[in-house]
């Protein structure tokens, strides 16, 4: 769950709505990189929006759980989705391309960031992308692709495979 940053004094600070759009904001990644982003784009993240509203950061928002590379990707996504002229179709196309080039590790990092920053659309798309990669695949294929290490003993593995024996037909061959 995304942490809801509270004003230390527990006060509700009213956001300056009129200036929000043009104003820039600095996001600081875990490894110290700083990124500038418009408030309108940053506001697509519910977590950042809450932080802005609480105004706890004074213009620089530290994101200790997101590294620079991942943050750069997330910001690319947010900028596209905040673009004035972009149609839904444009965004959909962008999302597809945006995710299609990503390695599994990157996808996982983006999923984590999407969840942490509470960007529902991004989080959903990434999860769906991961899920699509698992469909109709064998256990070994899923392990290899998603770099999951089996922590079963041989007996446990045999036991669990027996439990799900009904599912083993119709999976794609590992070759593709």
């Amino acid at each position: 769950m995304a942490p809801k940053n509270k004003n230390p004094n527990g006060e509700n600070v009213v956001p300056e709505v009129q200036q929000k759009k043009t104003q820039a904001l600095i996001l600081k990644s875990s490894d110290g990189e700083e990124f500038s982003i418009s408030k309108s784009a940053a506001g697509l993240s519910v977590a950042i929006k809450n932080m802005m509203e609480d105004d706890c950061a004074g213009g620089v928002i530290p994101l200790p759980l997101v590294d620079g590379g991942t943050l750069a990707r997330v910001i690319t996504y947010l900028n596209k989705h905040a673009e004035d002229g972009a149609s839904d179709e444009d965004k959909r196309k962008f999302d597809e391309e945006f995710l299609s080039g990503m390695e599994v590790d990157v996808l996982c990092d983006v999923a984590l960031a999407g969840n942490y920053l509470d960007i529902r659309g991004l989080f959903h798309d990434v999860c769906q992308r991961i899920v699509n990669g698992m469909k109709n695949k064998s256990v070994e294929w899923v392990r290899k692709t998603f770099r999951i290490e089996s922590d079963f003993t041989a007996e446990e593995e045999e036991q669990i495979k027996k439990e799900y024996a009904w599912a083993w037909e119709g999976v794609d061959s590992d070759a593709d």
């Binding site: 698992m134 392990r143 999951i148 290490e149 799900y164």
Partner: peptide, 13 residues
């Protein structure tokens, strides 16, 4: 996940 994929995911770790 659908049922079959869920089953195969369950066997990975």
């Amino acid at each position: 996940l659908d049922g079959a994929t869920l089953a195969s995911a369950a066997c990975t770790c």
